[in-house]
Nucleic acid binder design. Sequence first.
DNA 1: TTTGTTTTGACAAAAAAATAACAATTATGA
DNA 2: TCATAATTGTTATTTTTTTGTCAAAACAAA
Lengths: 216, 216
Amino acid sequence: MAEEKKISMAVIRRLPRYFRYLSDLMKLDIKRISSKELSERMQITASQIRQDLNCFGGFGQQGYGYNVEYLYDEISKILGTDRRFSCIIVGAGNMGNALANYENFSKRGFDIVGIFDVSPDKVGTVINNIKVLHMDMLPEFVKTHHVDIAMLTVPNSKVNEVAIQVTELGIKGIWNFSPTDLRLGDDVIVENVHLSDSLMVLGYRLKESMEGRKTS
Amino acid sequence: MAEEKKISMAVIRRLPRYFRYLSDLMKLDIKRISSKELSERMQITASQIRQDLNCFGGFGQQGYGYNVEYLYDEISKILGTDRRFSCIIVGAGNMGNALANYENFSKRGFDIVGIFDVSPDKVGTVINNIKVLHMDMLPEFVKTHHVDIAMLTVPNSKVNEVAIQVTELGIKGIWNFSPTDLRLGDDVIVENVHLSDSLMVLGYRLKESMEGRKTS
DNA sequence: TTTGTTTTGACAAAAAAATAACAATTATGA
DNA sequence: TCATAATTGTTATTTTTTTGTCAAAACAAA
């Protein structure tokens, strides 16, 4: 019944970027914007902007452009910024710490409700008002608290095991910070942050650039 | 004179992934691999693997496949894993801390040689054997130490200013952890790690999945 | 050595993504 | 009010990326 218009990942990955730019425009008190002007700011073609936005509906008006606040709200809705996601952090090391202290996540609807680790040094400590629990407590915790997302900042050697564990407990979203590609069920959504991959690409591009070639 | 075969970013961004899988194969003591078998492990088509690798040269042998160690070495060379990059971290907050303590970077050729901040709380502290210096010391530091890459983990409101500052000092590579897109000279290579974008995409996909749609 | 199998590298085809073009619509200013 | 300029949404075109195909090369076994 509902017409399933398939939206490509390429488009979806640009949405947060539109969201950011619109947020900036609002801060600058700019009320309307044309795809042309936005394209100059974002360094992409106006055509792409119009086509991207039209995947979700006609938010603009001919001869006028887009109303910044309206467009912002619509993209918010698409991205689901209105809903809240309960998240746990597994791995209370440096990266886990950094995530737990990152204020913006809760602003965007992602609440850290638990932090887990296995190290006796870490279990019992408090990070940003959240007590670090032992991994053994995880099954019980998930039973009593709804958890949407597990943020995995465990050592590479443990990540597969942990990923299986959290998905078996019914958690459907994984934000994976390890260099390992997780292979889980089709109903589990995995989003990777492969820091070392990113750094290696930077190294490659830098090297090419130093040798006089252009990369992008 | 040199034939500039343009290699697309899509290919380049897959290189670290090949690198990882080959590294794993070596650990498993696997000496040879066909594109078909690698494709099953990596969940991409064999055709893509062969085409990707052929951008850089014929590393395989008909009827045999690819020698794992040789291919690993070749991709290492392409990625520039042999060279070393001197890096500084600007912003000694939680993320800066996490990066400073991440052991794998030096393994891959990225050495953290300095950490900078402006907060009196942080300046003077020692992170992973590196003393945090005040930003005022940066120009002097860059004069006396060669720096390839600045890893920026400063607050969003300061990142533009800092990016301009480091590029004016001649640093050509930027690893940007802020949600802001930096616009710098053509000779500066910027690689972004937009954590909040990634998380928002996870939220979107999770939402879609919960509503019964598939995203990828 | 010979034959059949495997597997690459190259090229062709298909699919996806980005860009361009333009009719339709609205705003703006004379 | 009317004419002109601006700007969208949509369709067409182009470009890029991915996938499929196959001859040629190398291996492996008889």
